[in-house]
């Protein structure tokens, strides 16, 4: 792995996205619109304050999962990945380059979504906004790395889009948005402890309500990071220089 090649890859990915303004607009605007919609639905109830933070966790995770899995699948299918792996590019350069590029996009996306939620929709964030962004970023990195890993098991864009409901929806359902996790049946509660999105949502809630100290949030961030590292390791196994 070299820093130069990692940055070159991240820069290349961002340049590709820059040539696609519609994607950028969708990426930045859609989360805010949806957050606004949810806030509107729950006008005059305290519900938005409790699920608002969870929504901020969902968008970077889902969106980055989708675009990472589709762009890397495209690299595998068009032969650009094969070309890069026949060149002196390390697998880590490839994965970290993507993670870096999508991480930056996620910061932009989360910053807009958080600003909109707080200043337009009136979401109360009692803790640090920076910590909130840090969790959103960790979440985006997790989505990116999982997407990269998932793309190895898809032969087509159709399949990779199906991984979204398969890998992402259970985490959303069990993450405590619909029902607080401690009220879930015991088995489901135990399972939800092992899903990374649950920890992201817990951490964002803790920041929003300022109910825990920074050490707790740091711990949750570490858990998310551990899952991301796991996905990177599994993902790099799927990046084979030699293929059948």
């Amino acid at each position: 792995m070299t820093v130069g090649r990692t940055f070159a890859t991240a820069g290349r990915v961002l340049t590709q996205i820059r040539h696609d303004p519609r994607t950028i607009v969708l990426l930045v605007v859609v989360p805010s619109l949806l957050i606004g919609l949810v806030a509107w639905i729950f006008t005059d109830t305290p519900i938005f304050d409790s699920i608002g933070p969870a929504l901020i966790a969902l968008f970077p995770f889902i969106v980055m999962f989708l675009i990472a899995s589709i762009t890397t699948l495209r690299e595998r299918r068009t032969g650009t990945l094969e070309r890069l792996l026949s060149m002196p590019l390390g697998k880590a350069d490839f994965i970290l380059g993507y993670t870096l590029a999508f991480g930056l996009l996620a910061i932009l996306q989360s910053a807009v979504a958080v600003s909109f939620a707080v200043w337009v929709c009136g979401l109360t964030i009692k803790g640090s906004i920076w910590l909130l962004l840090a969790v959103a970023l960790a979440d985006a990195v997790l989505g990116t790395t999982l997407g990269l890993f998932a793309s190895a098991f898809a032969r087509s864009e159709f399949q990779v889009v199906q991984f979204m409901p398969a890998l992402v929806f259970p985490q959303v359902l069990l993450g405590g948005i619909f029902l607080p996790r401690d009220q879930l049946p015991d088995v489901l509660h135990a399972i939800s402890d092992w899903l990374p999105l649950s920890h992201a949502i817990d951490a964002l809630r803790a920041v929003a309500t300022n109910s825990h100290d920074a050490a707790y949030i740091g711990g949750e961030l570490l858990i998310i990071a551990a899952f991301a590292v796991g996905a990177v390791v599994l993902g790099s196994i799927t990046l084979q220089r030699r293929t059948p």
Partner: peptide, 19 residues
């Protein structure tokens, strides 16, 4: 095996940096 959504020069500049 080149990137459709980059210009010719951007493609080559990236591969040059990788190499």
């Amino acid at each position: 095996s080149v990137y459709d959504d980059l210009t010719v020069r951007q493609n080559l500049a990236y591969f040059a940096r990788v190499l």
